[in-house]
Design a protein around this nucleic acid. Sequence first.
DNA 1: TTGAAAGCGCTAACAG
DNA 2: CTGTTAGCGCTTTCAA
Lengths: 329, 329
Amino acid sequence: MAGVSDKTVSRVVNGEPNISVKTRTRVEDAIKALNYIPNQAARMVRNRRSGLIGLITDVVTTTPYSVEIIRGIQDRVSDARQNLLIANTSGAAEQEQKVWRTFQEHRIDGVLLATMYHHEIAFDPAERSLPTVLANCTARGHPDVTAFVPDDYQGGATAARHAIDCGHTKIGFLTLNPSILAAKLRRQAFEDVMSAHGVPIRADWIRPAYLGDVGHETICAYDVARALLDVPTGERPTALLAGDDEIAMQCIFAALSLGLRVPEDIAIIGFDDFRVISATVVPPLTTVALPYYEIGFRAADRLLAMLAGQAVATGVERLRCPLIKRDSC
Amino acid sequence: MAGVSDKTVSRVVNGEPNISVKTRTRVEDAIKALNYIPNQAARMVRNRRSGLIGLITDVVTTTPYSVEIIRGIQDRVSDARQNLLIANTSGAAEQEQKVWRTFQEHRIDGVLLATMYHHEIAFDPAERSLPTVLANCTARGHPDVTAFVPDDYQGGATAARHAIDCGHTKIGFLTLNPSILAAKLRRQAFEDVMSAHGVPIRADWIRPAYLGDVGHETICAYDVARALLDVPTGERPTALLAGDDEIAMQCIFAALSLGLRVPEDIAIIGFDDFRVISATVVPPLTTVALPYYEIGFRAADRLLAMLAGQAVATGVERLRCPLIKRDSC
DNA sequence: TTGAAAGCGCTAACAG
DNA sequence: CTGTTAGCGCTTTCAA
């Protein structure tokens, strides 16, 4: 319609130089008139790049907690004119095989692997030929695999330090399921900070707030907190650290049910900064934020750099968990 | 490597008939040995179908509330050997244009458009050439566009009826931002049911629990609930319906802060069944569930049927919001 | 049951 | 500045 060769159209579409203004406008007019849209698939056949980033999640897409990871990824990826092909495995290994296969069929440029919990996964880089970056997880036995995770140790330490800075010396800790890596790291940090400050650790004030296996647990923070708090004033902790914001919320309910005021009688510090809870609860939670958005953004950024052929660092990078100060401590 | 033509390989890969067993196994062996994976892009160039479903969300991917919609979609789509290309617009019209364009470039088979709030969107089917199904929204001025939404009217009626069935006659309602469609429908249902049962409606007990515009609101349910409840016993509502579970949660805090017991002194009914809150709060919330998973699943199912060329119903389909009975009413 | 030829829509390499 | 040729990896058509 523009009276030029297909190659010339290609040049216009791709903004290549050395086209006369007259030809360019003629082609552009034709494109508009014909409502022409280039076929990505055909491009992919010729070029090496598919322009597709694969995102594999265990249950992250479908769980309210870590959607922020995806938001970070999307923000970074769409800046780079790449598109996201998302698949989730529901944690099933067999499903994961299928997903990798699908990604290879689509000649995905690289993959981002994100998990809901911060934990170690079985991932062997030798088995997967695609450039991969992990988000919120690390590869067991392969510390060289690029990964971005929250610095749970620092986060736990920050929470403990804040409680101590607020003058507390009687501090309890309602933990996540102890088999979760994050729980271990935070607890270790808690104990280290307490010791470093010469604050006594009461083993019976450190209690799991979930019952059952990972993925099938039920929360029991309310009962645990009541048991801890339903004692004479002098024998009570004056501050409670929580493994997540749900636990913290149940701690508030427990305190209220006992006629205790938060934070005057009992201070509470959450973890995660899951805002639907942390900002809505009364009083709003002082909590340690998980840098989920940043994890997603940085992971995507690193993958893009790898794809661009830049020399980049490998290995695990731990991102700071900042204290969000609100009213509960 | 198998000593056959490319076409024969194609036949084996696609499971076409009329291949001798001997040839087939030779080809299969070669495929395995070479670790050959067919190139989807090249297939797409020849075939008409891309095998890709596009999912456009406003902020649904990135918001904790409605991830269930995505879970429903994914479950249905992966059953059908299709893949999901996800893009979100953050609500920006300009961004939405880009997304549609990208989808056309990828020769997407069809698109699913999901929103975070149940509301009407500007969507003109004439402008979009791709088969489209809406999830959690309807197209303003185009009632014929296929859409799946929660039946907010029925949900509101269910909540009101439950309160009345529990013997309450003094019922307050803390609403969402009144400009939201869901808020209007539920309030209408509330008033209709109250009237039908001869229960008096107190206009001053119907109060918005959010301040500010949609998307930028701040919750003020705690203060509103305290104002409603901080009066002599006889003048107080005995039940409060909430526009969502966050509001219900703040109502519980308000009640507790006034020394009131839930549900004995004041019953509370939530909306959404956002489990992180509804099941974790103490007491657990009696609430009306939004059928988000079902909305996603059904929307994907319908789109797939359309793509398969089946004759399917069009128009808006409203899905039941069931009452989830827990302990708060 | 198998293969050859042609072509899907695009772009790299080269020529003019 | 523009066009030609060739070919990406696959499948359709038709012939063998």
